[in-house]
Structure formats: structure tokens, C-alpha cells
Design a protein around this nucleic acid. Structure first.
Lengths: 332, 332
DNA sequence: TGAAACTCTGCAATCCTTTGCAAAAATCGT
DNA sequence: ACGATTTTTGCAAAGGATTGCAGAGTTTCA
């Protein structure tokens, strides 16, 4: 049923080699012949079988992406970037969701290895030791995780954190809470690092947590923050920030009048919240695109692969309506 | 570098056929031999090359999913279901985002066709005529779209609409607005159909739109609804409903005290909004799983494929905090 | 002990393309 | 018009796995 290269060859009255070449090395076949072949192929609806091609060339034209959890809106947005760029580069993409499970993640990399030219590991949940095991299995590009000299696209979370802190300080906040994400999370460590670096003389920063990096983690975190008497909250991520805002609303604490809230990630939802959430954008889609670019160049450059295998994306504070000057402590 | 079946055969001191059989028809090889083979394979880290296998068996072990837009949170959630079920059934999944573009969608189906055993078309944007062209290219399963006798998992949107209307009527609303989605959308037609069927004597329903089925579509829609003097709004989808709520908040109309709002889809965001959005859940993840089930059975049953190639999922109204009794018209 | 009946294993063809090498065809210079 | 080049084309092997068929090995039974 499916039309093969043989069919085209027979129909066009040439050998399969010629048909093959008409597609892969067009300049090697006479114009007249090539047109004829291409036209017959078109007419028959022939499309080369990538698997068969891959068998011999060793390249599949596919790439894989592994993400921790599709239901965290952060990931679909970087996925969107990966997707778009991959298509432009004529790659198909395999997607896998490892359900926040490192073991599963390893298995997925290994399962994919044979079918792809490389895989993009997004916010990998693997431990350093586990990563050892998969490095080398196939070409890897990391997003949001630095591991040795592996190619990676990183977000300057520390810089983003500084922007957030500066923003709040400028508004006049003097006591700020950071609601921490999972201890084991690389991103969380990065953000805390940025936080400590951004701290200044006139600022008191209290670190709470860890909390679940989801909406449900927010309410509990909010209560603790209120108890600490801070006037502003920086959450590990937007999901949590949204949970915080929801709890604050329930408790009658108005945002941003009585409490300022800042998130991280700039998930689409952030701008739709009430009030729209001030957050640190990681340029998710661009990160996805950059990862594909990195992978593709990794795959095509033969020798001197010493190019910049690392791309660092700026973070950007998006000021929306969840932050404002703190309530006047004198009660005026 | 990659270990092939030959390597295993050599190492185990048997022929490739035996290794192959040890994996695919274990009962055909003597226990002792099989153990030995499997063990050597394990030790060498052998994993069969699916592409090569596919070449001969005609099955790839892959399936494709095409969705209109990853940034609409509805799709990641069904994708999550597809993903999960696919892995259970030992299928890998190709993902493609067609950017709401029907032409692109066709191209994607055709590009995928050779590499997958079947594809799942989620809320396809293709016209009936365009669909003609792809049906037959490969095994197809539709989600959220009925096309001829093609296998599909449908959501009973009409039923969901009835629930929404009944809910509002029961609360005492008498004038309700439906904010329509894109005219060409199959889902929108279904929802309108349900709406008309659910209409009753004592209810005035005004249909507005069409609006962009996104957050940005909401504000404009909200203004029109307010002008119509309705007490409740049913939006084409949650995204739009969120946009409506945001606008209402800006205009000082409080939800649900002065205006009730109902959405469609139950995207994760819905429960996190303030107030949490009452919405019609489509059981997104289950839909994704069901689609895979359908596809797999379509692929495995040989002859009597006359099984139920259609799965209809119930919709379910999730009552949250965006709906309440209408303001008392007498002003009491 | 030997023929019959199985159970296991190996050979070789096959799936669809690509590609090195050699044959055929076209082009060129004189 | 003819040999020397250069361009085009075709043959056949290869890539990793599956599978029909037949040979080898084992068991059964008389």
C-alpha cells in the first residue's frame, strides 16, 4: 500500500539509486531526470521512509524531549518552543513525561536513545550520579540544569532573583519572605543562591519551606509568611505564588495593598490571575528553541565541537499588579 | 558503538535468529538458551533497534499526536493522558503542534504517517474536505471531533451544556449569555447545539460572539454581556471565562455576587482562579487515554474491527465559586 | 536399537534506503 | 571523428532486525 522508492523508480523508468539521489544529492543527477523523478514521486505521493534511511545513515531526523510533568504549565511553554524550532529544522519530536520520577526518566532516555539523534532533558530530576549513567547514551542537551560540561541552556535565575529583590526593595519593602521549593531541586538552589547574593544591609529576608512547588503548596506557605510579618513574598514558582494569592484572598489580605507577591516562570496563567502576577520570566519558549539549536549544531558540527555549548538566557522581571508599595507601618 | 543483535549473538555463541526469538517469541527457544541470551543482552546493554524492526514488521511502535496549540492548557492535559497510556502500552509518542493551522496539520499527518502506526488528531482544525485527504493515510483516531464513521473519542458537550444551564436556572438565573467561540469550530457548534436543546420556557438565552477562544477574547465579551443585562455568562471555554472574570473585576462587577460565570474544559487554571471557576469538565486526561486505547485496539484487532470505535465521555459540571444566586432584581 | 515425532536452532531472504564503485553516456578538444 | 574527460546512472552491499524453511538434536515408543 505505501509507495516505496522502488515504485517511483519503476514508474519513472530509472533505478532506485537515481531516485534516492534526486532527493538527497540533487546536484548529482541531470536536471531533466531529476524533474521527471521528482514529479513522478509527487504524483505517486512518495515520501521516503525515514526509518529505513536512518538505518543506513545513522541519523533518524528525530529528537526527544523529556519533561517532568505536563501539568505544570511551565513545561508546555518550553515544549512549544522546542516543537516549533524542531519543525523548522525538519526534525520530528518524541515527547515523554516522566511524572517527576528520576528512575522513569533514565528509562525514557534509554528507550529513546535508538530512535533519536539526541534528547533534550528539561529540568531533569535525576541526581548527579544518575546523570552519569545516561550521559553518553546519546547526545544530550539540558535545559535548566547544569551538569559538568554538558551542553545546556540555562536561565540566569540568580539575576532574575536580584531583579525581584531590587524591585521590592525599591518599592520600600524591608522584610521579604522566600518560599522555597523542593530542597533537591537544582532550580531552587539556583534561586536561593541568587537570593543570598541579592540580599542587602537594609533588607531582612526570611526563608520558608520547603513547600510543594504546586498550587497546593501555596496556602500553607502563605500562612507561614503572614505569621512572619513580611510585607512581600517571593515564591519558588508561579504555581505556588498563585496558591499564595488564593490563600491571601481567603484570609482577607489584599494583594498588593497589604502584601506583595512575586512568582517565577511567567506561566501563561500568571498574566490572567487577579491581580495579574508580577513574576520573573524565564523566556520559556526561547529556551526551548535554544535547546534545539544547540542540539542541532551539536549534531552537525563534526570536529571542533568546542563551540559555545552553553546558552545562558536572561531572566526578566515582568511587573504586573501583584506588587506595590508596602502598607505604611506607622498606620498613617 | 551501539550494541546490535549481532554483538549479542556472537557474545552468547548463538545465531542472531535465536537472539531475536529470545525476545519476540520466547516460548520458541529452550529455557536454558533463552536465559543465557537474555542475560548476555542485559549485560551488553542491548536494546533492539525499533526502526529496523519496524522495517520488517511494518509496525513502528510509535504513535503520533497532533494538537492545535500547546499554549492552550486544555491540550497538555489530554496530552498527559495520551502520554501515560501510550507508555503503558509500550508505544512512544510523536508530538506535533500545528499552531491552529489546518494546512500545517495535513502536512504533519503526512510527515508522521511513515513513522507511526497511527495518529491521534486532537480537536482537528481541518475542514471536512481536508479531512478526506488524510483519512486513509494512516490509522486515525479523533478526539473531540466527529467525522464520518472514523474512530473517535467524543465528549458529550451538549450534556455538559445542559448541566451548566440547569445549574444556573436552579440558582434562579433567567437571562443568560453564551459567549460563542469560533464559528468554524466543531466544538463550538456542539456546545451551541447543547445550549439550544437545554433552553427552556422560563429562560432567556442571548448568544454573543464569536470571540477569540482565548483569554484576550474575554474582556470584549464581558462588556457585551454586561450591556445585555444578563446575570450569568457561559463562556465557550475556560480561557475566555478567565478573561471575562478579569474584565469584570476591572469594571467592579463582583463574581459571583453580581454575575455568575461558567467555563468549559476545566483546565488546571480554572480551580486556581479567584474565585475558582465553575466549569464543565471534559475529563481531558481520560480522553487522552481513551484515544490511545482506541488506537491500540484498532491496530491489534485484525478482522472484525467493528468494535465500538467510538467512545463518548460524560461531561461533568464542576461547581466552584464563580456561580451563585443572581442579585435580587427587586433590590431588596 | 531404530524409526517417528517433536523441539530448537541456523541459514538466508526481506523490509526500504543510501552510497562506493564501476559502467555508460555525454561533453570536449583537436 | 576519436580519444580523453567529466558527468550521469546503475549494481550491489550494507544497515539491524524478523521469519519461513530446513537441518540438527532430542525424546518417545515399539
Amino acid at each position: 500500500m505505501p509507495v516505496t522508492i522502488q515504485d517511483v523508480a519503476r514508474e519513472a523508468g530509472v533505478s532506485v539509486s537515481t531516485v534516492s539521489r534526486a532527493f538527497t544529492v540533487p546536484e548529482m543527477v541531470r536536471d531533466e531526470t531529476r524533474h521527471h523523478v521528482l514529479e513522478t514521486a509527487e504524483r505517486l505521493g512518495y515520501r521516503p521512509n525515514r526509518a529505513a534511511r536512518g538505518l543506513i545513515t545513522g541519523k533518524t531526523g528525530n529528537l526527544g524531549v523529556i519533561i517532568p510533568d505536563l501539568s505544570n504549565p511551565f513545561f508546555p511553554s518550553v515544549l512549544k518552543g522546542v516543537q516549533a524550532r524542531a519543525r523548522e529544522a525538519d526534525y520530528a519530536v518524541f515527547l515523554a513525561d516522566c511524572d517527576e520520577n528520576a528512575t522513569e526518566e533514565i528509562a525514557l532516555v534509554q528507550a529513546m536513545a535508538k530512535q533519536v539523534d539526541g534528547v533534550i532533558l528539561c529540568s531533569s530530576r535525576m541526581s548527579a550520579a544518575q546523570l552519569e549513567r545516561v550521559v553518553g547514551t546519546t547526545s544530550l542537551v539540558f535545559i535548566n540544569r547544569q551538569v559538568g560540561q554538558q551542553p545546556a541552556v540555562l536561565m540566569d535565575a540568580a539575576g532574575g532573583m536580584r531583579q525581584a529583590v531590587d524591585h521590592l526593595a525599591a518599592l520600600g519593602h524591608r522584610k521579604i519572605a522566600y518560599l522555597s521549593g523542593p530542597r533537591a531541586s537544582w532550580s531552587n538552589r539556583e534561586r536561593r543562591r541568587g537570593l543570598r547574593r541579592a540580599a542587602r544591609q537594609d533588607l531582612e529576608i526570611v526563608e520558608l519551606g520547603p513547600f510543594a512547588p504546586r498550587f497546593d503548596g501555596g496556602p500553607h506557605a502563605a500562612d507561614l509568611a503572614i505569621a512572619e510579618g513580611v510585607t512581600a513574598i517571593i515564591a519558588y514558582n508561579d504555581l505556588m505564588a498563585l496558591g499564595v494569592m488564593s490563600r491571601l484572598a481567603d484570609r482577607g489580605v489584599s494583594v498588593p495593598t497589604q502584601m506583595s507577591v512575586v512568582g517565577f516562570d511567567d506561566i501563561p496563567m500568571a498574566g490572567m490571575a487577579t491581580p495579574p502576577l508580577t513574576t520573573v520570566s524565564m523566556q520559556n519558549e526561547r529556551a526551548g528553541r535554544a535547546a534545539v539549536d544547540l542540539l542541532v549544531s551539536l549534531l552537525t558540527v563534526t570536529g571542533a565541537e568546542a563551540g559555545d555549548l552553553r546558552r545562558e538566557l536572561e531572566c526578566q522581571l515582568i511587573v504586573r499588579a501583584s506588587t506595590a508599595v508596602p502598607p505604611d507601618p506607622t498606620g498613617r
